[in-house]
Design a binder for these strands. Structure first.
Lengths: 108, 108
DNA sequence: TTCCTTTATCGTTGATCTGCGATCGATGCT
DNA sequence: AGCATCGATCGCAGATCAACGATAAAGGAA
């Protein structure tokens, strides 16, 4: 990806698009919620403050393994985090990361 | 399930999350900007108010066909719109749709 | 008309996502 | 110890994405 095949003219316009290092982070956060199930998971977690994985599974018409995958994606984006509590895992929102997403969008 | 297990605010709530139309719309908008190139395109268009496709192509290290694909995705999400102006196409932000995305995120 | 420019679309290749069942690891309980 | 439960991971299928080059379609200029 991004083999940087240079185009010909580079200064035909007075404004140049600066290479945004934030674009990648923005895209990553947006990607995390770019699926209806993950939107619902995030909303659910925000409304519940914290809950177990099994509870989330029960709220969605998806298999446990599928929900676990979505949770993994959300966790990798940093939007949520999970704490092992005995045999269970308690998930909750990462407020800092959520705020980051909000600022990215509002500053558009 | 629902075994009166005294967890921290983790009791069973008969709230169903399936078939949430707003979650789908939210996910669609999030998906539109879930790629660094599309983030940059959107930011660029917001800063420029309106510009031609070729101008966007010159700002990105991507082939013209690839950029056209991204523009198509953004157009399908409703986030941007293009007006045919002779042989060129003038793209601009759909403010209503952008506002919709912002409200979705801020209301998280 | 013929040519040039601008943009969209086609066709391909490889990578990634999504969904599921099955299974494994870890923990708690009896 | 043995067993049940919870959650993560594996492996497979099908679908979609991302990138490119090549080409088509549409309008302006010569």
């Amino acid at each position: 990806m991004a083999k940087t095949t240079k185009k010909k003219s580079c200064d035909s316009t007075p404004v140049k698009l600066k290479s945004d290092p934030t674009a990648e982070d923005f895209a990553k956060l947006a990607w995390a919620i770019a699926h209806p199930a993950r939107v619902q998971i995030v909303r659910f977690l925000i409304g519940r403050e914290a809950c177990m994985c099994g509870e989330i599974v029960n709220q969605l018409p998806l298999a446990q393994s599928t929900v676990s995958q979505h949770l993994k994606i959300l966790k990798e984006s940093g939007l949520i985090q999970g704490e092992v509590d005995g045999p269970k895992v308690c998930y909750c929102i990462n407020e800092d990361r959520l705020q980051k997403l909000k600022s990215f969008v509002t500053e558009l």
